[in-house]
């Protein structure tokens, strides 16, 4: 009797372990932070790219419309790929696009803007990468869709036509 209980327990245990490992095989082993939505945007202050003035975040995201914060750098290749997509959003009146220039040299960033166009209404500087961390980003590019001081959607990696149409459907 005692033996039977032990056998049942052992069988259950190994089946359980097997199932878990089986399940684990299907999960990706590269960690990405969750696309944590509906979070309040962080408060920070940063210098602007062209005017070199200190601005506070409260004065940037203060209107009742959609904002798109795009973290980019001239040295980042995927940023070049996604740039045309961001340019395509530029004319949308309900949306204001803010750039956060991440760990870049001003000269290179300027020529990037001159070559590929400037979709941003404002570009903020993040020379040491600390502001990106306030936003919960860990690389470039990352993009945040913001409405009423809340992050509605977060895109890790370059934007593509799919994410652009998603953004468009949000701001309709």
């Amino acid at each position: 009797m005692k033996n039977k209980i032990i056998i049942t327990i052992v069988i259950f245990f190994f089946t359980f372990v097997f199932l878990i490992f089986y399940q684990g095989l299907n999960n990706s082993n590269i960690y990405k932070p969750s696309n944590s939505e509906n979070k309040i945007i962080p408060k920070f202050s940063a210098y602007t790219f062209f005017e070199n003035k200190l601005v506070k975040s409260e004065n940037i995201f203060n209107q009742k419309k959609f904002y798109l914060l795009n973290i980019w750098a001239s040295w980042c290749l995927p940023c070049r790929d996604e740039h045309p997509f961001i340019m395509s959003l530029k004319e949308n009146e309900k949306l204001e696009i803010i750039g956060l220039n991440y760990k870049d040299k001003q000269k290179n960033a300027k020529s990037f803007i001159n070559n590929y166009g400037n979709p941003y209404s404002k570009i903020l500087l993040d020379k040491d990468g600390t502001k990106a961390i306030e936003w919960g980003a860990y690389g470039v590019p990352e993009t945040f869709l913001i409405f009423e001081n809340q992050i509605i959607k977060k895109y890790i990696g370059p934007l593509n036509s799919e994410s652009i149409s998603e953004i468009k459907s949000f701001i309709k």
Binding site: K103, D128, G129, T130, I133, E134, Y138, G139
Partner: peptide, 13 residues
């Protein structure tokens, strides 16, 4: 990595 360097600064701050 870039991320780690910045994160060290953030922790310091």
């Amino acid at each position: 990595s870039d991320f780690a360097i910045s994160l060290k600064l953030v922790v310091k701050k």
